[in-house]
């Protein structure tokens, strides 16, 4: 029921105009920024594994930006824009399930936009694509685990957002921007200064993106040393273990922040100045 309500709110996006904006124009423009950056420097060497690495990483990073941020953004949206958060709280629905419901809609929409970006990449930018060589079981399994992991991270962020009532406008986007840096999405972790690399190694997103790359374009992933020593199965296990760990932390944090937010009366705070 709670999830259904969340879904109904997000699926306002079935408006064709809005769908085009959020699922095609915005993500494609973001991808094109990287394409232009790469093209300017390498004189349009789009056949290189470096390009496929960053293009695929960026495409699938859409899930991070949309699912994780979407789940937490619901808090800001409901509190500041619709001012309905307090009413949700006094209604019998469960807030985490409601947030997850909003996440489900995001997953479907994001899947579409990732598909569009990949089609553009394959059609115009020499991204290698051979259905016979794709490891479909690995791809599907990784995708599912990854999405659940992202939803849990979203819950963590939702808790933080709830608690930091005074300033929540850009927090989701900012965190997504930060993780973009530490999860090997658009460059291998080796490019980071050595002291920052451990952050990438503890983020489940790094393993998830690696698994996605391996399942789709095995050859590209092999060109980068980051996780070369780890087998597919081990990568999957690491991803699963980290997902469970972050899941537990998220649920604990949500409960704690939720309680604190109620205690401090932050549920109906708005800051429009």
């Amino acid at each position: 029921m709670a999830a259904w309500l969340g879904w109904k709110i997000e699926s306002n996006w079935t408006d064709p105009f809005l769908f085009t904006i959020y699922s095609i124009v915005k993500p494609l423009a973001a991808a094109m920024i990287l394409v232009v950056m790469y093209g300017v420097i390498t004189n349009n060497q789009f056949g290189s594994p470096v390009f496929a690495y960053l293009f695929i990483g960026n495409a699938f990073y859409q899930y991070v930006a949309n699912v994780m941020v979407g789940v937490s953004w619901a808090i800001v949206d409901d509190r500041e824009h619709y001012c309905t958060l307090k009413y949700l709280y006094v209604s019998p629905i469960s807030i985490p399930y409601y947030l997850m419901g909003r996440g489900v809609a995001r997953v479907l929409i994001t899947t579409f936009s990732v598909f569009i970006i990949m089609v553009v990449g394959v059609a115009f930018l020499h991204i290698p694509f051979n259905p016979a060589q794709i490891n479909w079981p690995l791809f599907v399994l990784s995708l599912v685990i990854g999405i659940i992991m992202l939803a849990m991270l979203g819950l963590l962020l939702a808790g933080v957002t709830l608690r930091m009532a005074q300033y929540s406008f850009n927090i989701g986007d900012s965190v997504a921007g930060a993780l973009y840096l530490f999860s090997g999405a658009i460059f291998p972790l080796e490019v980071l200064p050595a002291f920052l690399r451990p952050l990438g190694y503890i983020m489940p997103i790094s393993y998830w993106l690696e698994l996605i790359r391996r399942s789709l374009v095995g050859g590209v992933a092999e060109s980068f040393p980051t996780f070369a020593a780890i087998s597919d199965v081990n990568l999957l296990l690491i991803l699963a273990a980290l997902s469970v760990l972050f899941g537990v932390v998220s649920v604990w944090a949500w409960k704690k922040f939720d309680w604190e937010a109620r205690e401090r009366g932050l549920l109906d705070q708005t800051n429009n100045y």
Binding site: Q166, S174, A178, Y180, L192
Partner: peptide, 25 residues
């Protein structure tokens, strides 16, 4: 808190693009 959210976090995203440039030399 803007010092963190509006300076430090955008900085991380700036850094991501910086490292892309570094990665492609």
């Amino acid at each position: 808190s803007w010092i963190f959210f509006d300076t430090f976090l955008p900085m991380l995203s700036v850094a991501a693009y910086v490292f892309v440039y570094r990665a492609i030399k």
